[in-house]
Design a protein around this nucleic acid. Structure first.
Lengths: 236, 236
DNA sequence: CCCCCGTCAACTGTCGACAGTCGGCCGACG
DNA sequence: CGTCGGCCGACTGTCGACAGTTGACGGGGG
């Protein structure tokens, strides 16, 4: 009897900090915590039934992801988006994903191609029945996988710090998103180029894809912020 | 009597966390904490005469910069460099700086050009008298300024997270660095292209510059790690 | 009427304490 | 002789408490 080499996978211990971070993040991307509003450590801890320490740490993590900003001795605030920040973010995203597809084009194998294809197919199949957050999730997951298949762990880490913020922006600006089927299919040219190992084409398609998303988000922002509007901190 | 408009500048409050972070970072880049060694919160706090909370937070910051790695429930460890991580890091750095010069080429003004030139001049002038950490500092500062002049705040933030790690790598692998004067002058072509607003050239020069540094660091690593050598955790 | 300076409440920064977990060690059992 | 189970020290995760700082409010003085 040959026992399976590794019948078990490492068990996931849901860290308290992780839970808090997820909860806080949800509150933001779902709009319960609007841009600019203050996040009070003690109050948050009380509501969640934990102490301030893990809340503090979760907030710090979200600061690194750009969801929160910390003013020393004044606490954390939900980031307030400006059009410049959208531009900055997408410019960086463009660079990172360009780096990712370049790497992926060299290192991805058949299994990787298959997983990416499966991701697109899943998006297409489930397109009609997905909630907006789910669509966003699947979409960004594809891009995250690109970074993963680039084999560059650091690139993946950096992209991950951006990804959450992109998600927030999309969630806030583009609640109904675009036609999910269209979005899903928009990824196909990238994957095709990747499968053909055509680095130049893959990079061009990626740039095109991101740039298009960039413009789309930009337009949505412009339409939702007609002149200029101030966000203030609501009371606790 | 016309009082000076703004006779005072905002006072810098040296946050305890900042101090601890700086101290820990110095310990690493100066080699007092070798790669792989464990950083014990309580012990560190005791030695520095503070409590664990700020030490913990400083360590988290350094984790985000890649100087430390955190194993849940096992604490922090000084990052152990591998050649793959050097490659990953420099690949990302290449992308980010490419993005930076592209942006800088569009947005930099005469004052910016002047500041960059001053930075190069300073490096040249002080070249003979600089300690290795100072040389590294000035060198990386130039690149940080490129990001700054790109006008992309997020890019600057992302690059900052990488910068410290690059510094560590250089400090660990290349204690005597290259000829400081040569290094200083190597930046001139980038600046010249920037001043001429030749984006293509500026990007090419930058890629060339970073790639060259990449290869140099890679060689040094290979020469210092002949076959393969394990780093273990020394006692406290 | 406006400005300036205490006063005050609300939070953050920091601390010490306790419980839970991990790896190492040792003795016992097969 | 190899393996299992319990014990132990060391540290991290988490908590509640205290001190210092900040912005707001309100009462005198100009």
């Amino acid at each position: 009897m040959t026992p399976i080499a590794k019948p078990f996978v490492p068990v996931e211990v849901p860290d308290l900090v992780d839970v808090i971070e997820a909860e806080l993040t949800r509150a933001i991307v779902e709009g319960r915590l609007g841009p600019g509003s203050r996040v009070i450590e003690a109050e948050t801890a009380r509501q969640m039934g934990v102490s301030r320490a893990p809340v503090r740490e979760a907030a710090r993590r979200m600061e690194r992801q750009g969801l929160l900003v910390a003013k020393p001795r004044h606490g954390f605030f939900v980031r307030d988006i400006t059009v410049k920040e959208i531009d900055d973010l997408y410019a960086v995203r463009l660079s990172l994903e360009d780096c990712a597809v370049a790497g992926a084009c060299e290192r991805i194998d058949a299994a990787g191609i298959a997983r990416l294809q499966a991701q697109i197919d899943a998006m297409c199949d489930q397109a009609p029945s997905l909630t907006p957050p789910q669509r966003i999730q699947l979409d960004l997951q594809f891009h995250m996988m690109l970074c993963e298949f680039s084999g560059n762990a650091r690139l993946l880490r950096l992209f991950a710090t951006i990804e959450t913020e992109v998600r927030m922006i999309i969630a806030l600006l583009d609640n109904h998103y675009q036609d999910p089927l269209y979005v899903a299919k928009a990824h196909q040219p990238i994957l095709d180029a990747l499968a053909a190992r055509d680095e130049g084409l893959a990079r061009a398609e990626t740039r095109e894809h991101i740039t298009s998303a960039w413009h789309h988000v930009r337009d949505r922002f412009a339409s939702q912020h007609p002149p200029s509007r101030y966000q203030e901190t609501p009371p606790s």
